[in-house]
Design a protein around this nucleic acid. Structure first.
Length: 486
RNA sequence: GGCCCUAUCGUCUAACGGCUAGGACACUUGGUUCUCAUCCAAGAAAUCGGAGUUCGAUUCUCCGUAGGGUCACCA
């Protein structure tokens, strides 16, 4: 049996044990893209069968993360449709129903041992340096299961399993990976091994996307499919995401960040979706910048990579700038305005309007909002909002001149700008350039720029003048003249 | 340790068994520019090692090496 011709159904099935990191989001994204590409269905299912590890508020946090990225689901915790529920803890009778089927077939049995006894078996196995397999201790006759003990699978056939993976091709694993796994725990909750298979079956899931850490568990899963006599879905193994130094798989313990931390740092959801799509997949063309629609169109399972991908933060920065470049001035200004103003000591009372004017000089200098905050705190943008403080020595363009030499230049600039058109940087440039060319560009432009910015290194004077306006520009030039004369 | 997966510039990657191994990030140099940033152009930079199959191997096979994963009443 195969599921190739059925309408595509994919799912993302996180456990609510905390935040979502990039690995989890990437898995969600691939499942989402594939479903959308084929006009299929994408389900968000919560796998909360381990009450010990559950973290309060995780479900809402996960949903917020996906929503931020623009990943939408057709069925989920609050809209389960005909599934009844997309939360596993609310589907317990279903798992029990399938468990009963297996018991009837003689393919499931209650675990007759105490935890202590099993621990002892393991110890002996370790001492004898052989792998522990529960099936070596399988009782000869099965008792009746009253639900107070764990229910185990009786592996239908001990054999080497070979299966097809849409990314990796033919995979196989030996019988040493097969065991009488627990289906239902003694607390009444199913294990992941069992629950996900029942859910995928009853939800009609056609493609299972998951990271390659599950490859070694495949024989266990397949033996359950076989015991239930149900068809396999299509397995799509995603490559691991490695740490920046490539030494280890990226996990929560190794500094993998909450995806929402990237939002705080000023990464755009478009950037994250674009970048995550490219970690472990590429279209085989030279295109690197994608919108969501581009991705849905281009996404293709056969182009998913096999090798692990390191998460390259430098390239992520570059990509964020690229996406930021598609913003118009207003959009960029409100993006910047989302900075917490308490962090911006040097920019008191800035408004979106002011930021919108300053946007041209801000946007070319930053990759993220976090960088804006950093630069703003060091005073990088002060001149855009208030008259600068500076030493008059700074006004001199060359070492062999005196600061006072530039006084006539500033006075002339003052006259030229008196009635100049301040509507664009270019119109201001037009007013100054003929004179600048005549006396030497640096001779005029350097002191004018210093008068406006107070900084050795800054954006050009025309842009600054345009941002601060005619009145403020003339005022700063007068101040510079006063300083030199005084 | 057993089993499994993976291996191309520093990094992310492309290349039905067939051009000079392509692109991007980062880097270096040059250009534009009064300065910085931006922008533009150029440059340097890779097939893990060894066998085999083949007219021909980055690509297929085997061995080795390295990295990763997994061996739960976690998912």
């Amino acid at each position: 049996m195969n599921t190739t011709n059925l309408p595509v159904v994919t799912r993302f099935a996180p456990s609510p044990t905390g935040f979502l990191h990039i690995g989890g989001v990437r898995t969600a994204l691939f499942a989402y893209l594939y479903a959308r590409k084929h006009n299929g269905t994408f389900i968000l299912r919560i796998e909360d069968t381990d009450k010990e590890r559950e973290v309060e508020g995780s479900i809402a946090h996960i949903q917020e993360s996906l929503s931020w990225l623009g990943i939408t689901w057709d069925f989920g915790p609050e809209n389960p449709g005909t599934f009844g529920s997309c939360i596993q803890s609310e589907r317990l009778p279903l798992y029990r129903e399938y468990a009963e089927k297996l018991i009837k077939k003689g393919l499931a049995y209650p675990d007759p041992y105490t935890a202590l006894e099993v621990a002892a078996f393991k110890e002996v196995a370790a001492l004898e340096k052989r792998p522990f397999l529960f099936r070596d201790h399988r009782p000869e006759t099965f008792g009746t299961w009253d639900g107070s003990t764990a229910l185990r699978l009786k592996v239908p056939e001990i054999k080497r399993y070979t299966w097809d993976d849409a990314v990796r091709g033919e995979l196989s694993a030996g019988p040493e990976m097969l065991d009488d796994v627990i289906l239902i725990k003694s607390d009444g909750y199913p294990t992941y091994n069992f629950a996900h298979i029942i859910d995928d079956l009853t939800m009609g899931v056609t493609h299972i996307m998951r990271a390659d850490e599950f490859i070694s568990s495949m024989p266990k899963f397949l033996s359950i499919y076989d015991a239930l006599e149900i068809p396999y879905p299509i397995f799509v193994t995603l490559p691991p995401i490695l740490r920046d130094d490539r030494t280890k798989k990226l996990g929560k313990r190794d500094g993998a960040k909450d995806i929402l931390d990237y939002r705080t740092d000023g990464y755009l959801p478009e950037t994250m979706m674009n970048f995550l799509a490219l970690t472990g997949w590429n279209p085989g063309t030279e295109q690197e910048l994608f919108s969501k629609d581009d991705l849905i169109t281009a996404f293709d399972i056969t182009k998913i990579q096999r090798a692990g991908a390191a998460f390259n933060e430098e390239k992520l920065l570059w990509m964020n700038k690229e996406h930021l470049n598609t913003f118009n001035t207003e959009a960029f200004a409100s993006y910047i305005a989302m900075s917490e103003s308490s962090h911006l000591k040097s920019l008191p009372n800035f408004t979106v309007e002011q930021l919108a004017k300053a946007a041209p000089l801000i946007r070319e200098r930053i990759h993220t909002r976090a960088e804006f905050i950093e630069l703003a705190e060091t005073g990088e943008y002060d001149f855009a909002f208030a008259a600068p403080q500076y030493d008059t020595d700074l006004l001199q363009w060359k070492n062999d001149t005196s600061p006072k030499d530039c006084l006539p230049r500033l006075k002339e600039a003052l006259i030229l700008l008196q009635n100049a058109d301040f509507s664009t940087p270019d119109s201001i440039k037009a007013a100054l350039m003929p004179y600048a060319e005549a006396v030497g560009k640096g001779e005029l432009l350097w002191p004018v720029r210093i008068a406006l910015s107070g900084k050795k290194q800054s954006p050009d004077p025309f842009t600054i003048a345009n941002i601060i306006g005619s009145g403020e520009t003339l005022k700063r030039l007068e101040t510079a003249c006063d300083k030199l004369e005084g």
